[in-house]
């Protein structure tokens, strides 16, 4: 599904990722943990195609394609979804409009006709229910005036409607209270399937209590310094990151 090999990325000539290698197979859930400044968000931004990052070395292959060659919207249409750490507020554009525009862009890319208005509403409403959201949210401007928890739920709602193949969750747990975290996690778990992969980026272990990963990786100083099963997360929770940081060198 996704193969990252020896990835080096700089921002304004400052190296952030320094040789990151990671493989994700269909259906797998990978968690990337690490201290602040390790390059976690840089990884999610580079994968989704945000401007301002220079790849100086290495490759990213997604479903046999060179992901880095694709425009952000093409990546999205090919099934890469980024749930933002800080979802953007867009006054004047309703949630339902964005969902429909996004879904139709995707369908067009795959040579399918535009979604039928009634079918679309049925799909969206069922996903809204899944995430325990009020239908009124659909008609409000994207993220405008939403609480932190509502914004994160809205990201997962978009994922649920767009049905990506690779779902990148960037600090999806940040800013959530325990109830909101549970709802978001349930939403994510309901999306798990043998074809769909997840890359969860998180600072804390607590999200992993709700969404159990297949693999846990520690990102420190721009590369993966340790990989293991879910038990690694518990170890990190106990010991922190400092004991691993020397290993990056």
């Amino acid at each position: 599904m996704l193969s990252i090999k020896n990835l080096h990325v700089s921002i304004n000539d400052k190296p952030i990722l320094k040789g990151l290698t990671l493989d994700i197979n269909p259906g797998e859930v990978h968690a990337i943990m690490g201290p602040n400044g390790a390059g976690k968000s840089t990884l999610s931004h580079v994968l989704s195609g945000k401007a301002g990052y220079t790849v100086t070395e290495g490759s990213v292959t997604y479903q046999g394609k060179d992901l880095l060659e694709l425009a952000p919207e093409i990546r999205a249409r090919e099934g890469v979804f980024l749930a933002f750490q800080y979802p953007v507020e867009i006054p004047g554009v309703s949630n339902i409009y964005l969902l429909k525009a996004a879904l139709n862009a995707m369908r067009k890319h795959h040579g399918q006709p535009e979604v039928d208005a009634m079918d679309f509403l049925t799909i969206v409403k069922s996903k809204v229910k899944l995430l325990q959201m009020d239908e009124k949210f659909l008609y409000r401007a994207v993220n405008e005036g939403f609480s932190g928890g509502e914004k994160k739920r809205n990201e997962i709602l978009q994922a649920a409607v767009l049905e990506p193949k690779l779902c990148i969750l960037d600090e999806t747990d940040s800013g959530l209270d325990i109830d909101a975290l549970r709802i978001v996690a349930e939403g994510v778990n309901s999306l798990r399937s043998p074809e769909r992969s997840f890359l969860m980026i998180t600072h804390y272990q607590r999200l992993l209590d709700y969404i159990e990963p297949d693999m846990v990786h520690v990102l420190a100083e721009g590369r993966i310094v340790k990989s293991g099963g879910p038990e690694l997360a518990l170890e990190l929770e106990e010991k922190g990151y400092s004991w691993l940081e020397g290993k990056a060198a």
């Binding site: 952000p72 999205a76 979804f81 554009v93 890319h109």
Partner: peptide, 18 residues
């Protein structure tokens, strides 16, 4: 603009939508 692109909307349309 990037947020809309990340949802599959091309850049020109994203600018028009906004």
């Amino acid at each position: 603009v990037f947020y809309l692109q990340s949802r599959g909307v091309d850049e020109a349309s994203a600018r028009n939508i906004l």
